[in-house]
């Protein structure tokens, strides 16, 4: 059974149909890249998976459990959705770090708030805090940012900010980590350092969905590629196959812009 099963997702904004009956499956440890031109619905799909947008139709299952179903209103209450969100992590194009917190605090904040809701938090406060801090420091070290733990976001470069954001998402141990054009706000030099982190995550079999415009990166790192256009998945398959030998004319046209 696939870890993630998405079926029949549609979404319209006013008169524009942004997603048309999208279905996809993702195995544990698999990394898929979603490519396509702007406005093809890639970002909206990720936002639906993270419940930042509410799809009009469809169903989202993780590990066989129905997290969200357009036909089942009880899966859509705010408190239900809040818990289910934690199956997913999302890294934004614009990082969205909290400016008033240091890198370390950004990584720790959500974990601390969740720990506070657990029974027995007060008695073990110090130990829990120490554990969370150690975990956050380890994650920042993994991102190559040990010496930036006490810096505020505005004191970090874009690439460093994005790596803090990745550490922040990893801190909650999501089943599936989503990236929404993680390098689109970065210049080429900084793009490299973020892609390096993504390569490492893929090598460690992190389950990921990456919306990206970096074709060679997608080809090398993703197991599978989905090409979206006009709200539908036009073509999908093993990464190298889709990039090197696209079957659909529309895919070929799109990839031509990237010199493939």
């Amino acid at each position: 059974m696939a870890l993630l099963e998405v079926s029949g997702i549609s979404k319209r904004f006013d008169s524009t149909e942004v997603l048309k009956d999208i279905s996809l499956e993702l195995e544990k440890g698999e990394a898929i890249a979603i490519i396509g031109s702007s406005g093809s619905g890639k970002t909206t799909l990720l936002r639906c998976l993270n419940f930042l947008e509410t799809a009009d139709t469809g169903c989202i299952k993780v590990g066989g459990e129905t997290l969200w179903d357009a036909k089942l209103p009880h899966t859509q209450s705010e408190s239900e959705i809040r818990k289910k969100r934690l199956h997913f992590g999302l890294v934004f194009q614009n990082f969205n770090l909290f400016p008033q917190y240091t890198a370390l605090q950004n990584v720790m904040l959500a974990g601390e708030l969740l720990a506070k809701e657990q029974p027995g938090y007060k008695a073990n406060k110090k130990r829990i805090h120490a554990e969370l801090e150690q975990q956050a420091r380890d994650l920042l070290a993994q991102m190559g940012l040990s010496d930036r733990a006490d810096h505020y976001p505005h004191q970090l470069s874009g690439g460093q900010q994005q790596r803090v954001a990745i550490a922040r998402a990893l801190a909650l141990h999501p089943d599936i980590l989503c990236f929404d054009e993680p390098t689109s706000a970065l210049d080429p030099e900084l793009t490299g350092e973020v892609l390096r982190v993504l390569r490492e995550l893929a090598a460690n079999n992190t389950t990921m969905i990456i919306v990206t415009h970096e074709m060679s990166f997608a080809r090398d790192v993703a197991d599978r590629i989905l090409f979206m256009d006009g709200g539908v998945v036009v073509e999908q398959g093993p990464a190298k196959e889709v990039i090197d030998h696209p079957k659909e004319e529309r895919t070929r046209q799109f990839l031509a812009h990237y010199g493939n």
Binding site: L52, K83, L86, F92, N96, F98, Q100, A110, L113, A169
Partner: peptide
């Protein structure tokens, strides 16, 4: 994006307001 970042990290509306938005 600040609110959305809080949401995807599983924060409640009031946690987002008091811990993320308020000081800004």
């Amino acid at each position: 994006g600040q609110t959305e970042a809080g949401q995807v990290l599983g924060m409640t509306r009031s946690q987002i307001f008091f811990k993320v938005t308020l000081l800004q």
